[in-house]
């Protein structure tokens, strides 16, 4: 039993020494967005562009002055989500979202979304609560 534990620990160690799997990027996100400009956007999602190579979420964010500003937030490719049953109806326009991310280097209202958080605190898609097992229905 002890030997097994040691072996398992050793496997974990060897895997760790191989190096953690790094995040893969289609392009250099740190060249597009500014690590020194973290943003937290709280607003209403008006549109989700389920496009490649990356999704874009359109979020209306109300500023302290009450003025609504549209932000575009870059996310991941939607293909695997679609294969898992997520559809354009899964996240409906009007969904309240908090996005933690980083603003575009050129200063426009674009950001990469590090975390997409729903009002109940869960992360977008992680529970796949809106997914339809077996495929994407057309409704």
């Amino acid at each position: 039993m002890k030997a097994t534990r040691l072996k398992l620990a050793a496997i974990a160690t060897i895997v760790a020494l191989l190096g953690a799997v790094p995040v893969w990027a289609h392009h250099a996100f740190a060249a597009e967005f500014d690590v020194n400009k973290p943003v937290t956007l709280k607003g209403t999602m008006t549109k989700w562009d389920m496009v490649n190579p990356h999704s874009w979420f359109h979020v209306d964010v109300k500023g302290p002055d009450g003025k609504v500003v549209e932000w575009m937030v870059e996310g991941g490719s939607p293909n695997t989500l679609i294969r898992l049953g997520v559809t354009k109806y899964t996240i409906k326009p009007g969904t309240e979202l908090t996005v933690e991310g980083y603003q575009a280097k050129e200063g426009s209202n674009k950001a990469v979304g590090r975390n997409f958080i729903l009002p109940d605190g869960t992360r977008l898609f992680l529970s796949l609560s809106g997914a339809v097992p077996g495929g994407a229905p057309d409704k």
Partner: peptide, 23 residues
């Protein structure tokens, strides 16, 4: 390892979360 969260304020954090998009 893929689930590991990156540290806010680091270059590695300037990216969407792979797990949130099932990637």
């Amino acid at each position: 390892g893929e689930d590991e969260q990156t540290t806010p304020g680091t270059t590695a954090d300037v990216h969407y979360d792979f797990t949130q998009f099932a990637l």
